[in-house]
Design a protein around this nucleic acid. Structure first.
Lengths: 253, 253
DNA sequence: GAAATAGTGTCTATAAGACAGTATAAA
DNA sequence: TTTATACTGTCTTATAGACACTATTTC
């Protein structure tokens, strides 16, 4: 029985017999702008998918691992040098024809941070802007962008990852600048989940979870419409929520 | 300001200017043998890491995506053609020097199934056998194998994924052949978690979760030592556990 | 004062932890 | 009968859902 080289361990046979592959990272960078969960997209200037919008990304350099490349792209695309937020690997997309020209395997990542600035135009001429996630994904608004490659799939996977991650971790607090108020944190959950957790029970859950938030001891500004000024908090050292924050059923879908 | 090509979108510039990479899949295949969570390892015959044990794996062929390659490797390594179990992508490992000879990016996968047979020697001469996970990872037993490459890290990540996955999904039932008994399912949780959920509360949780298991209406065989014969069940259509099965704190670690 | 926002207290329902008990088999 | 395994019932405790209430601000 002959043994095709493809069944061998990496390195057991000469891998140079294999067609090689280009490896990229793509990033789904989320932030909350005006209470709306938003994702950073760049407009493609050239074929394929010229005029389509795409997740920012780029090649993994020879001396980098995927995480390093993702951090580099994150800084380049957002224009923020000291990124205070969260970045993690999502999953890898490897369909042979996901790029029509070359075999490109994309190691997708997921990032989110407090209200990031409007992206700078960058060194190249590409347009870049924040899009409301709902407009990009389930949206059929007039200005809904078509997404290049398999980026609609990647974005949908990233969204579900964020939604589930804030259930059982304290990462929701990475979406707000310190110090923050509980109503602000509550709006994070509302924006990400697309549904509103009961405010009183939400407060109880957050405050009873040890080290989720720590009080600053000061009060924030009241809104222009009046109302009691909210207490201020900072992120605590806790990383997981045990038990999890329960996600209410969505009104739509 | 010059713009290195590495900052460009994939496809915006010619990717053939980039050094290419070889892409493999590695598999952490788990099963439960004699009540012990076990993982399939193959012994490397050649350098590098000759004599070390490694996760089974191989190159992703040009016409395959990673999932297809993983299914193919799974069939080849276990010798099972109709695999009744679970396979999913774990994460991608891309440290530049994880293989000393070539740049190899590994898309690691995770599989588990009911008590799989001892692996056939395979078409090549490599040894392959099941190892108790505890002996491979935290074990300092005399026969503890050294793992090649970064496979100890991959295996540790895979183990944590399995442990958490059976908390909030019904996938634990993929570790047993149908029909199965609740004590058998209980032993799955005990073996994977390394800690024993309270049996009476475990039964209540499983039976109160709609469509987790469906009774066959028959009883299984009693053990040689006697005792009441257990009821038989099959896997139900449910996929998630809401709320999750809580993992007790481990005695060790 | 009204309106708006922030925050508290409490009743109820659900589910987990603990544990004592019963049921059915082999020897 | 003893022993071993399978299974049931129930009390207590922790937490989520619902909702009414108080507190502090602007106008």
């Amino acid at each position: 029985m002959s043994t095709p080289a493809s069944e061998q361990q990496p390195g057991t046979y000469d891998p140079s017999a294999y067609p090689s592959v280009f490896v990229t990272v793509d990033l789904a960078i989320f932030t909350i702008r005006n209470g709306v969960l938003s994702v950073l997209l760049v407009e493609r200037a050239e074929e394929p998918y010229a005029g389509f919008w795409a997740l920012p990304g780029g090649f993994v350099n020879p001396d980098e691992d995927a995480g390093t490349a993702a951090w580099r792209e994150l800084a380049e695309e957002t224009g923020v040098e000291r990124f205070s937020g969260h970045l993690e690997q999502l999953r890898t997309y490897s369909e042979p024809d996901r790029d029509p020209r070359h075999r490109i395997v994309s190691i997708a990542h997921l990032a989110f941070a407090p209200d990031l600035p409007e992206p700078t135009a960058g060194s190249d001429a590409r347009a870049a802007r924040w899009w409301a996630v709902t407009d990009v994904l389930d949206g059929t608004p007039d200005d809904a962008p078509g997404l290049a490659f398999d980026h609609a799939l990647i974005l949908a996977d990233a969204l579900e990852r964020v939604r589930s991650k804030i259930e059982y971790t304290t990462l929701a607090a990475q979406f707000v600048d310190e110090p923050f108020t509980l109503p602000e944190l509550h709006r994070v959950y509302s924006a990400v989940w697309g549904t509103e957790p009961h405010l009183a029970n939400f407060r109880r859950k957050v405050l009873k979870t040890k080290d989720f938030v720590v009080p600053v001891g000061d009060t924030g500004e009241t809104t222009p419409e009046g109302g009691r000024p909210p207490q201020l908090y900072r992120r605590g050292p806790a990383e997981v929520l045990q038990p999890a924050m329960l996600r209410p059923a969505r009104d739509d879908d």
